[in-house]
């Protein structure tokens, strides 16, 4: 981070930098092409190929989001001129955004997808009414009227839900079994 009196490399006191017109138009057409690729991918009827050992739906989703990522990079590097910056400050600001968002999504995902490891009944929603339920053919989730009992049988005998070992496992991850 040079102090502010060093002038920009070479010519005195000319702010910013010029992005050549060809780059702008080139990135525009690249973006249009990638949009077309995304649309093509999304319309690809995955069920047609009956390859069962590949989860085609997941691959298609990652490919679509991958093209979206490339388009995002083109927009930020060329249209927003991050590639031409001499100082790395603006680039670090832009990238640290995604570091914090990754932390946020990672930990919320760790929480929501590992709930009920010890007590599976926690994940099961009870007594809630979905506005969609009235339209669906009558089933959907248990109505609010009846007080649902927890999934784990409340029998006096040893519970069937989780045969919890009295001595929890030693490794850091909770006793998931």
């Amino acid at each position: 981070m040079s102090s502010n009196t060093e002038n920009h490399a070479g010519h005195a006191d000319i702010p910013g930098h010029e992005i050549p017109k060809s780059t702008i138009i080139g990135s525009y057409f690249a973006l249009l092409f990638l949009t077309a690729v995304m649309l093509g991918l999304s319309q690809l009827n995955v069920a047609k190929f009956d390859i069962d050992w590949l989860n085609l739906h997941a691959i298609r989703t990652t490919l679509i989001m991958g093209t979206a990522l490339i388009m995002g990079l083109i927009v930020s590097m060329f249209l927003m001129g991050l590639r031409y910056e001499s100082k790395l400050l603006n680039l670090t600001i832009f990238l640290s955004n995604f570091v914090f968002l990754l932390i946020f999504v990672l930990f919320t995902w760790v929480d929501t997808s590992f709930r009920g490891e010890v007590d599976p009944t926690f994940n099961e929603k009870i007594n809630w009414t979905s506005p969609v339920k009235h339209e669906a053919a009558g089933e959907g989730h248990e109505g609010a009227a009846t007080e649902a009992k927890p999934a784990a049988p409340a029998a006096e005998a040893a519970p069937a839900a989780t045969e919890a070992k009295p001595e929890p496992a030693k490794e850091a991850a909770p006793a998931a079994h």
């Binding site: 007590d119 009992k149 409340a154 919890a164 070992k165 929890p168």
Partner: peptide, 21 residues
Amino acid sequence: GMKGYLHMRVAPAGYMQVNVK
């Protein structure tokens, strides 16, 4: 803390269950 916490979360076998509202 971690070791104690696991004891406090994992119920031993043969527990008696009560529903609390």
